[in-house]
């Protein structure tokens, strides 16, 4: 893993549960530059203050602005729609919602999760999104 700060990828973690937030931060902070937000609102604040992550890892059930609302906006916004989003939630039972939003979500990780599995999947998304953005778009 690159330890060099400039080469390290940036991740925004959006999670309202304090302990869960610490856990995610501790899993990812060794390999990435991590910023945390405790709901969709603080995630928006962090983004608008100039933090531009390479990936957003978000929970769904949150107060104020929830995960679906955040994803729906980010994927319409010209400034943020290129950022890959990974959803981490136990709320996948709302299957209709998933169908609507699937095209925007790069990966879904279901809680409870295995920490090492989460790390692998996040790094997988980062690798594939880097590859995708390097491919020239036809026409």
């Amino acid at each position: 893993m690159a330890r060099n700060n400039e080469n390290m990828k940036k991740i925004l973690i959006v999670e309202d549960n304090i302990s869960m937030r610490y856990l995610l931060e501790n899993i990812l902070k060794k390999s990435y530059i991590v910023r945390t937000a405790d709901d969709g609102l603080t995630a928006m604040m962090s983004l608008s203050q100039g933090f531009s992550p390479d990936l957003i890892l978000t929970d769904i059930n949150m107060p104020s602005i929830n995960g679906w609302e955040l994803i729906a906006y980010l994927k319409k916004s010209a400034l943020y729609k290129h950022i890959p989003i990974v959803v981490l939630s136990s709320a996948f039972l709302e299957e209709t919602k998933v169908e609507v939003e699937t095209e925007y979500i790069y990966d879904c990780i279901k809680k409870p999760f295995e920490p090492i599995d989460l790390l692998h999947r996040v790094s997988g998304v980062l690798k594939s999104s880097k590859y995708l953005s390097a491919v020239p778009v036809n026409n």
């Binding site: 304090i18 302990s19 856990l23 929970d59 136990s90 809680k111 409870p112 295995e114 920490p115």
Partner: peptide, 14 residues
């Protein structure tokens, strides 16, 4: 601890 990484169970770690 790894099996307790769901929203509800995470509360025990508060």
């Amino acid at each position: 601890a790894a099996t307790l990484t769901s929203d509800h169970w995470a509360n025990r770690f508060d």
